[in-house]
Design a protein around this nucleic acid. Structure first.
Length: 272
DNA sequence: ACCCAGGAAATTC
DNA sequence: GAATTTCATGGG
């Protein structure tokens, strides 16, 4: 990791909130507050000082990739301002979680990690994902591992995935890899298709229901209108936003969802 | 021993 | 068809 990129003028970013809010599972906080991880097959160490995001990585030419990954060209202050008009509790959540950005992750990685997420906890999800990368991902120069390619995973059997200890989710991962690799499920189609069509495309995969599909659309395809509802969000909607529907949150509902999700998880006493 | 975990498939009523 | 049970695994 020979180069250090310095991205200036970065606002509305908190690395801990963004990288440890349950949208991604491969970043590790270091004792000095920096985070190390891999995205798009590239290792990086990132840290934020004032309004400059420093990224230690291999290639200086990857700056646009990292700008995109951290979604730095979307004006989150403006989004937050619009969302805050919708509901006072949303304004509170948006202020509390205002450092969250929706990462532009790779679609296939998001698909696999949110298949793994079902009926699971974040700590164990991270462990399964780590073993998946170590077992089947490319080893990078610094010793980290890329996320495995869909072509690699498409030829694996459920037994091959046993070391992951993913349980009943192993066959879902195989099904996803095979359907994406064959072209039966077209992830790039989901980037631009009508929302319901994109969701239906993903739900061709065994183990992908509405919630996982919404997460893939939000976190892997940057469909920021997506509003995944899990057990936390169900509780939060009933308690904090009675009578409101996901569709009431507008074109940036997914960002609202992340604010509410993070706010709710950090205030469990609200739901006693 | 018991419960839950960023759900979805399989089974039952 | 809608409601309930099961599905592996690990942590509290």
């Amino acid at each position: 990791m020979s180069e250090t990129l310095a991205l200036c003028g970065v606002r509305d970013l908190d690395l801990a909130q963004t990288l440890d809010c349950g949208q991604c599972f491969r970043w590790v906080e270091q004792p000095d507050g920096s985070f190390t991880g891999v995205a798009f097959g590239k290792s990086a160490a990132v840290r934020l000082e004032k309004n400059t995001l420093y990224i230690e990585t291999e290639n200086r030419e990857d700056e646009p990739l990292w700008r995109s990954y951290f979604d730095l060209d979307l004006d989150y202050a403006s989004v937050r301002s619009e969302l805050s008009k919708l509901h006072p509790v949303l304004a509170e959540a948006a202020e509390y979680a205002g450092g969250i950005r929706i990462l532009r992750q790779e679609p296939y990685e998001a698909l696999c990690t949110f298949i793994i997420s079902q009926n699971n906890n974040i700590k164990r999800i991270k462990g399964i994902v780590q073993r998946l990368c170590e077992c089947f991902g490319e080893r990078l120069p610094d010793g980290a591992y890329a996320f495995p390619t869909v072509e690699t995973m498409a030829v694996l059997s459920v037994e091959d995935l046993a070391p992951l200890r993913a349980g009943f989710r192993a066959r879902y991962l195989c099904d996803a890899a095979q359907r994406v690799s064959s072209g039966e499920v077209d992830l790039e189609y989901c980037r631009t298709a009508e929302y319901e069509d994109a969701r239906a495309e993903l739900m061709k995969i065994t183990g992908v229901g509405v919630k996982v599909a919404d997460c893939v659309l939000l976190f892997g395809l940057h469909r920021v209108e997506a509003f995944p509802v899990d057990v936390w969000m169900k509780r939060a909607m009933e308690k904090l936003f009675p009578g409101m529907q996901p569709s009431d949150f507008g074109p940036y509902a997914g960002i609202a969802q992340q604010y509410i999700f993070h706010y709710s998880r950090r205030h469990p006493e609200l739901f006693d």
